[in-house]
Nucleic acid binder design. Sequence first.
DNA 1: AAACTGCGTTCACGCTTTGAACGCAGAGAG
DNA 2: CTCTCTGCGTTCAAAGCGTGAACGCAGTTT
Lengths: 110, 110
Amino acid sequence: MLTDEYRYKILKLVQEKPDISQRELAKALGISLGKTNFCLKALAQVGLLKVSNFRNSKNKLAYMYVLTPTGIEHKAAVTLNFLKLKLKEYEQLAGEIEELRSEINAKVND
Amino acid sequence: MLTDEYRYKILKLVQEKPDISQRELAKALGISLGKTNFCLKALAQVGLLKVSNFRNSKNKLAYMYVLTPTGIEHKAAVTLNFLKLKLKEYEQLAGEIEELRSEINAKVND
DNA sequence: AAACTGCGTTCACGCTTTGAACGCAGAGAG
DNA sequence: CTCTCTGCGTTCAAAGCGTGAACGCAGTTT
């Protein structure tokens, strides 16, 4: 399943290193190869990135995952979205931490 | 699967309200009844809580989930652990947010 | 008595993820 | 040139996990 989290992370990693392999990507994302493959295909299917074969300096067949213009746009949007989400998480965490702290302090009076 | 998160949350909710039902618990935890049942059993199996039937004021059979002494101890430990974990998450989030921010700012220069 | 309510329990189902295995293509060794 | 080796994307059977409808039970209400 392709969540916003992976949408963002994959677009980011691919933009940073277009010649990344699916196995590297999987490791960087902390997910399986199969899922990585699935996500990449999904992103390609909706036109956010393109898979292009090319010959590198040694005439070796290589793969590149390039963000399409739509992909770049989408990445900006999804990044902002992700930031908002993270900020919300952050605030919630701050609250939870405070709660945990007082809980631990309360324990002193048991 | 019984993660530390649910271990903590269940012990907390049960301690606060021992006569809570599995359905209430499920709703509070945001998980299904089946999973809740599974987690409770797992906690009982390792001796952190006990399920006790009793007759309430109206002679109605009722259930209570009571933390064992071990459970209370464990809860303190797991709470602390959870706090540490949350703090780590918090810091990581702060980092990610910063990263996202500069990424968005960098976009201005595209 | 019969219907209803709310409890814990079960488990078939569906969805997701995993990673071993595959075919392919270039690189390197003999 | 041929054989082996490596690393790529791709596949898919198997495993993992959560879900919630359905069940039996017991007390309550009609």
